[in-house]
Design a binder for these strands. Sequence first.
DNA 1: GTCTATAGCTAGATAGAC
DNA 2: GTCTATCTAGCTATAGAC
Lengths: 185, 185
Amino acid sequence: MRPQKVNDDELITSLSKILRTHGYEGTSLKDLSDSTGLKKASLYHRFPNGKKEMAQSVLNHTGKWVADNIFNVLNKEGETAESRLKNALLQIQKLYNGGLDSCIFRALSMQNGMDLFSDNISNGMKEWLEAFKNFGLSIHLSEHLAEEKAMQTLIDIQGSLVVSKGLQDTTIFENTLKKIEDKYI
Amino acid sequence: MRPQKVNDDELITSLSKILRTHGYEGTSLKDLSDSTGLKKASLYHRFPNGKKEMAQSVLNHTGKWVADNIFNVLNKEGETAESRLKNALLQIQKLYNGGLDSCIFRALSMQNGMDLFSDNISNGMKEWLEAFKNFGLSIHLSEHLAEEKAMQTLIDIQGSLVVSKGLQDTTIFENTLKKIEDKYI
DNA sequence: GTCTATAGCTAGATAGAC
DNA sequence: GTCTATCTAGCTATAGAC
């Protein structure tokens, strides 16, 4: 076996970057080849089902990163709610590159992408809701209020990313993260 | 001259439907031809610059509809603020088909679309902000608060559309419209 | 104004050398 | 594991008949 030119993590990172920027339909195999440095045939060797498997891998990889670096931080034992939330919001800022990068859910959720990934996207969003609901419960909000606040948080994040992109102004995203903090504490 | 098979309004409506569903990159001329009932060459006769001109026309047409049916309603002389807001929110619900349809800004704001339409999208969003700011001023909010509430309203609309689509649950969009009403009144 | 036909290109995908 | 070469299908776009 030849050595890998690019390891799995680097590969997924490049794929993620280009898919989140151009969307599923707007990303060609040539784009993916150029951005990873691997030829198309090599990409097919690593991902036999082509572009849809690459996007799927990006979804899985991102889901794991978010679980480890956001949800776990948000509900970590033995830390104050303030510090858990603050740290989680810092990780969210990192995930979206300060508002410059789009959410992978959005990038894959036009019709063609939805036909392939709707379950992943739906389940992924439910995990965000659950994580923030658990955070709400940990600060003794009622079940109902914890759910409501979690939903508003998800809407704030997604909405501020769309508006930041549209107005080309990342302060909108940053201000929204600050507001999320204020709404909880 | 032969008669038009499809008038401009019907044409734009079909183009809008398909572009908002599939996004700019995900919509092919064949899709546009199938959905409008006009052959590709006929579409080029009506829009000599092809797909980008069709999307541009959809943006312009939607912008006019929104100005006439949402912004004008929201700031109509001689009606109570409650009734203006309620009516505008009904029109917003109509624009997005109860949360089933995506926003044209979102459908055109992956990278390839942004390269072509960033100014339209940015200016369009600024008009939403201005319209809601003026509404806020009309109910005697401070300049600062009126701007802040307008931004949150835009974020709520865009965010709830993304989350509704992702979770395939339009009640999220509907509940957000109700909340917008509560936040103002 | 709409159509058929077609040009020229790029897409996704595969075969087989090294 | 990566590559070059290639296939077929689909893409955007145009020419020219009616």
